[in-house]
């Protein structure tokens, strides 16, 4: 757990000092990818709580989810379908579900 926190902090610090930002046209893609990442992380935490955490599943899910989400939104942009909101809604719902499961687990354990 401590490694995850250290990695997170290190990443944030690194993010503040890297010179490049996101080009204006890609901010929506990036935010969806970020949402997918957050979803994977909470999914991973939930799995860890339930005791069936698998790091290969977690890592592959983390990257493929993010890339796939961004790709889908990109395709949707070109087809005139606002998949952006759909992706945000779906990931948001899942994040809250996972949060709920984690909370339940913690309460029941104590």
């Amino acid at each position: 757990m401590i490694y995850a926190v250290i990695g997170l902090l290190l990443g944030m610090v690194l993010g503040f000092f890297v010179p490049w930002g996101i080009p204006a046209g890609y901010t929506s893609l990036f935010s969806v990818a970020l949402m997918a990442c957050l979803d994977s992380v909470f999914g991973g935490l939930r799995a860890a709580c339930n005791g069936n955490f698998d790091d290969r599943v977690f890592i592959s899910g983390f990257f493929t989810n993010a890339l796939l989400a961004a790709f889908l939104v990109y395709v949707g942009d070109h087809l005139g379908i606002d998949l952006y909101y759909v992706a945000l809604l779906a990931f948001g719902l899942r994040i809250f579900n996972n949060l709920g499961a984690i909370r339940q687990h913690l309460i029941i354990k104590k």
């Binding site: 757990m1 990695g7 997170l8 944030m12 993010g15 930002g21 935010s31 990818a33 977690f58 890592i59």
Partner: peptide, 24 residues
Amino acid sequence: MHIEKGRLSIACVSLVLGLMLSVQ
């Protein structure tokens, strides 16, 4: 908690997440 299994890889993933968060 089984998180300790793939410490390094998880640290990498968190790093990427943190990077994305702060860039965003």
